[in-house]
């Protein structure tokens, strides 16, 4: 554990909490892609199958449980409790375009052709593209509430901080994981355009609005 990794985890946690609080306090999930949230829930389930078989630390286990509960809570709020506010007309990204390639790739490129390992690899590939339905939704409506953009910024920062963590671990511990690193870079790159808009607009008090 190093400071970059810890900051990444905290950024991830903050993103998840921002989203839950936004939905809970406004009693609305307008502008949020339920499809991205389903993909994140699937990601966590596939990755944390080792929760009871591979003990790492209290921190690790607690965080896994928190991420799982929070992602299921978000999906519950969107599809059950505040279903009426869910903007499904704008949430039209086809999930099979992300899930099927992630399944195929995880069967072909993995560290070890074993059940838990393939599920882990699938979760890494799926997470790297899970935000696409959300970004697609923002581009379709042409704007995002500032709270939604804070959420996206925290979520993007998480993977960017993980990259710094991997560079640090490579030099300090000789540790590297090619699958996680390459997928993590893809995931971070997807946020670049958004980061640019966030810094040039949202931080200056303007609404995130895409150029017409």
């Amino acid at each position: 554990m190093n400071v970059f990794r810890l900051s990444g985890d905290v950024a991830h946690l903050i993103a998840i909490i921002i989203l839950l609080l936004k939905i809970w306090t406004s009693r609305s999930c307008a502008g949020i892609s339920g499809k991205s949230q389903i993909l994140f829930a699937v990601t966590f389930v596939a990755r944390y199958l080792d929760l009871f078989t591979n003990y790492v630390s209290i921190y690790n286990s607690v965080m896994k449980i928190v991420y799982l509960l929070a992602s299921f809570g978000t999906v519950y709020l969107m599809y059950m409790k505040f279903k009426a506010t869910y903007d499904h007309n704008h949430d039209t990204f086809r999930l099979e375009f992300l899930i099927l390639p992630a399944i195929a790739l995880s069967l072909i490129i993995n560290h070890d052709f074993a059940v838990i390992e393939v599920f882990w690899t699938f979760s890494i590939y799926l997470e790297s593209v899970a935000i696409l339905p959300q970004l697609f939704m923002v581009s379709k409506t042409g704007e995002a509430e500032s709270i939604t953009s804070h959420y996206l910024f925290a979520l993007g920062s998480y993977r960017a901080l993980y990259i710094v963590n991997w560079i640090y671990r490579y030099y300090m511990e000789g540790f590297y994981d090619m699958i996680a690193t390459l997928a993590g870079i893809v995931q971070t790159v997807l946020y670049c355009d958004f980061f640019y808009l966030y810094i040039t607009k949202v931080l200056k008090g303007k609404k995130l609005q895409l150029p017409a």
């Binding site: 080792d50 690790n60 390992e117």
Partner: peptide, 10 residues
Amino acid sequence: IAAQFGKDEL
């Protein structure tokens, strides 16, 4: 080390 597949990370 091509380590323990990053399983200590979240």
